[in-house]
Design a protein around this nucleic acid. Structure first.
Lengths: 142, 142
DNA sequence: CACTTATTGATAATCGTTCTCATATTGTGA
DNA sequence: TCACAATATGAGAACGATTATCAATAAGTG
């Protein structure tokens, strides 16, 4: 965790971005919380702890961390965008349970390889990708 | 095209859904247009042809066709949902060019296989999936 | 043709997110 | 340590895509 905070602070310094109280709060809360979270959720958690930051600041800070490659925004269905911090994590994908909302992370070399091959064939330069499988998890099909 | 219209009309009949003038217009426009389109776009096209339907009706009709498995809604990045009709088309994925907006469809047996295997391992029942690759297309990297 | 039921249009409501701008805070260089 | 320019913040307005509302209208059945 320390290493993670440091990585983030380094990123901010490099870019002449100020390490404000609010940003610290948001980053700490993010690292302490579940891997996947929504902005509203994070904001509410802070508020419950008596730490009041503006919703706008939450969005702005997350946006900043995305630019720095420290956070990723994932589309988990219709109107559901969530964030996850990706410090030291490999690029993975998600299975999303439509009943209980469970998220199963997965990653697979074989898929990565194929994907690389297919983009090369098209002369397509890959920046990011987004793979979700929707359905019912083990618990919800039993 | 005829077969497609028929397939849609059959679906409507089976479900006791009325084949109204407005729905015909929307379906025709959809089949005549680009594979991928937004609701606003479709609405505007109809309007330009002097066919006035309510935006709400466009959304409602597309929703209906999704239920019937005749149309699919795809998330192509941040705030970009688009529709595509999937009559007689295999389940495919997209490469999205972030510069020119080009869409390259692809499908790959190997990826499908892996994906099937991975979900089985998790005891996950797959309903649908969504795979996008973001980056720059051939023309935009040259 | 009449009647039940589904559908439509216009517009208000919603919801997550972004913008605005006056005020406050940070970090630097003296 | 202080002063100052540059950045960041908060509160709420604005936004944009989508959905809901509900009275008026149209479809299809018998």
């Amino acid at each position: 965790m320390l290493a993670e905070v440091e990585k983030i602070e380094n990123f901010l310094k490099q870019r002449q971005i100020k390490l404000t109280e609010e940003r610290k709060l948001i980053i700490d809360e993010m690292l302490a919380s579940q891997r996947h979270f929504g902005p509203e959720e994070l904001w509410e958690h802070l508020r419950q702890k008596g730490k009041r930051v503006s919703r706008a600041t939450v969005y702005r800070t997350l946006e900043l961390l995305i630019e720095g490659g420290l956070v990723k925004k994932v589309c988990l269905g219709e109107h559901c965008f969530r964030y996850e911090h990706i410090l030291g994590r490999k690029n993975h994908s998600h299975m999303v349970c439509l009943k209980c909302g469970a998220l199963i992370e997965f990653l697979d070399e074989a898929i990565d390889e194929r994907q690389k091959l297919l983009s090369q064939q098209q002369g397509f330069e890959v920046l990011s990708r987004c793979f979700q499988i929707f359905g019912y998890c083990k618990n919800c099909t039993q």
